[in-house]
Amino acid sequence: MINSITSLNFTKNMSRESWVNLLLLVVIVSVPIIATLMDEVYYVNLSTRIIIIAMAAVGLNFALGFGGMVSFGHAAFFGLGGYVAGIAAFHSFEGTLFLGLIPASDQMLLIWPVALLGAAMIALLIGAISLRTQGVYFIMITLAFAQMIYYFSISLTTYGGEDGLSIILRNNFAIGNSNNPLHFFALCFFALLMSLWLSHRMVGSRFGAALTMAKLNETRLATAGIEPYSIRLVAFVVSAMITAFAGALFADLNGFVDPSMLSWHRSGEIIVIVVLGGVGRLFGPIAGAIAFVLLETFLGGFTDRWQLFLGLVLLGVVLFARGGLIGLMTGNARHG
């Protein structure tokens, strides 16, 4: 990981961004460790919440930041991952079969592939239709699909409908004890690093070059004999899978899933986090998630009107800090 960060050191600005990235990682890792040493488990869980939300945004950033696809429906994938984890935990706790046919497992290593595969299939379907449209239409059609899945989740009476589903026992991972907050943090952190590494590798590859070209100049890509549609579709599916992975972890962190994981507000929040951190910057989602979750948490401690101040801060960032927080910290306004 560190290698891949430092290997980006081409220009002075880039190196500064790498240092900011490194700093973010240091902070993220050191807080839960210090907190564990001081027996303050709350901060461990808060850090886990931050990195899972960051990971959801890493997923969106891949489609949005690198592929220029403004998906207003990524909460659907986030919720989908969550529901796979929740339903698996539910059936294995009750000792019942999924749809009366398939035995469930509480092993994360089995749950995650199902979540990823499920998200991939749905994203393929949604992407195949949505990517025929562009601009605002794309924003809105992804929203429409997400709303459809949202209402579907409300109608799942077996799994609690609008009340959602409690995960009474957190699913298990092969190594360590997933119920130990620090172990679970480590697991999520590793997942985040994986998703960052995947994004980084894919963006740096020939595929990434084609994706960027599809965003900047579609005609040139087409003349090179590459179909922008399929490039975008692959990127959209990968992006959805990363977000779904984060959703599965989020469900296990919270101990429940419910339709609000799929609401359009959640889609909006994931966009907010990407933009807050800096669109198309590898570590943007992490900076964005830290800022968003801390604002949400600490503003609420000061005032009942915390959403008013959250709105003002967000507005300030859009209007005056173009390039997001990473841009602000590196003094580099726009990237990519």
């Binding site: 303050e40 488990v41 709350y42 901060y43 869980n45 808060l46 919440r49 609690g160 609008e162 009340d163 959602g164 409690s166 919270n254 101990g255 429940f256 419910d258 609000s260 949400e296 948490t297 609420g300």
Partner: peptide, 29 residues
């Protein structure tokens, strides 16, 4: 958010008693 606040109040502020939730879906979480 309710769930996250519950963590904060129990794990950080060490409250003895929790109360206040209005909606069933938040209570179930």
């Amino acid at each position: 958010i309710a769930k996250s606040l519950a963590n904060e109040l129990i794990q950080k502020d060490k409250v003895d008693i929790l109360t206040g939730i209005i909606w069933s879906n938040l209570a179930m979480a």
